[in-house]
């Protein structure tokens, strides 16, 4: 299923999407592939596969630690793509990576390698729209959506432009800060999401800091999808039942 079809289906069912972020190669490559399957079985509507990086400046302690351990276990963008190529999932797979591993893979290989691995989208937290022009054409030639991020500090002009350029959906960062579960969502979040909705026609997925069914319920009206990441990475670390956890989170995306 494509990203667009996923959001259309969600809209027709009047429910918000649940995007699950999992670190590729954590704790091992095989385990990360099993965990993706478990999240899909639990009802994830979209999977974000994180690529470990030595210098994850947008990530908090949970994902930093998983990234580090994945690297120690031998993970790389290339190996994770190979792992994905051997699988088929019923939901869109989106790669979330810092720019340098992409540069190392080589611009000429990205389209083909991603397509072969069944990847439909790409999120690059350190590639703002001003720097993305040289990537958009070669990705769209391969049918891969380059998803732009929006932040509470983005001006209206930037939000409008981000909305125009982003493909598939807009990833709204819920707060000024790094990834990682927070007890409370930012109080300015509803106003930010409202502003984002007014300025872009694309679906909006909100992420960073979201970990509980209550938080998801409070966001259901304001966004088309929510992203949960660090909470799931933590669950994997603690050997929790990932499929069960995703089921609970997914239930919160449906209206009562």
């Amino acid at each position: 299923m494509t990203i667009r079809e996923t959001f259309e289906r969600l809209r027709s069912r009047d429910e918000a999407g649940l995007a699950c972020y999992l670190m590729g190669g954590y704790p091992t490559l095989d385990a990360s592939m099993r965990n993706i399957r478990a999240a899909v079985e639990g009802g994830a509507d979209l999977i974000e596969v994180g690529i470990p990086f030595s210098d994850p400046i947008a990530d908090g302690p949970t994902i930093q630690a998983a990234s580090h351990e994945a690297l120690v276990a031998g993970a790389s963008l290339r190996r994770i793509l190979e792992g994905l190529a051997a699988q088929r999932f019923d939901v869109p797979i989106v790669i979330m990576t810092y720019l340098n591993p992409l540069l190392a893979l080589g611009r000429d290989r990205i389209g083909a390698d991603f397509a072969l691995s069944g990847v439909s989208g790409l999120i690059v937290p350190d590639l703002p729209m001003e720097e993305s022009d040289e990537w958009t054409p070669l990705l769209s030639d391969a049918g891969i959506s380059l998803i732009q991020l929006a932040a509470p500090t983005s001006t209206d002009d930037r939000l409008r432009e981000i909305g125009k350029r982003s493909e598939g959906f807009v990833y709204a960062v819920s707060l000024t800060g790094t990834t990682g579960a927070r007890r409370e969502l930012s109080s300015e979040l509803p106003a930010f999401l409202k502003r984002a909705k007014q300025l872009t026609a694309k679906p909006i997925a909100v992420g960073f800091g979201i970990s509980t069914p209550e938080q998801i319920r409070s966001l259901r009206e304001h966004a088309d999808a929510v992203v949960v990441g660090s909470r799931l990475v933590d669950a994997i670390r603690q050997n929790e039942d990932l499929c069960g956890l995703v089921k609970t989170l997914k239930a919160a995306t449906r209206s009562a």
């Binding site: 400046i57 703002p128 001003e130 720097e131 991020l149 983005s154 930037r158």
Partner: peptide, 19 residues
């Protein structure tokens, strides 16, 4: 765009772009 020849630019999270 902040480039010296092929080098430089702004490769940071969107949160920092306005700043």
């Amino acid at each position: 765009r902040g480039y010296f020849g092929a080098f430089g630019g702004r490769f940071v999270p969107e949160t920092l772009m306005h700043a």
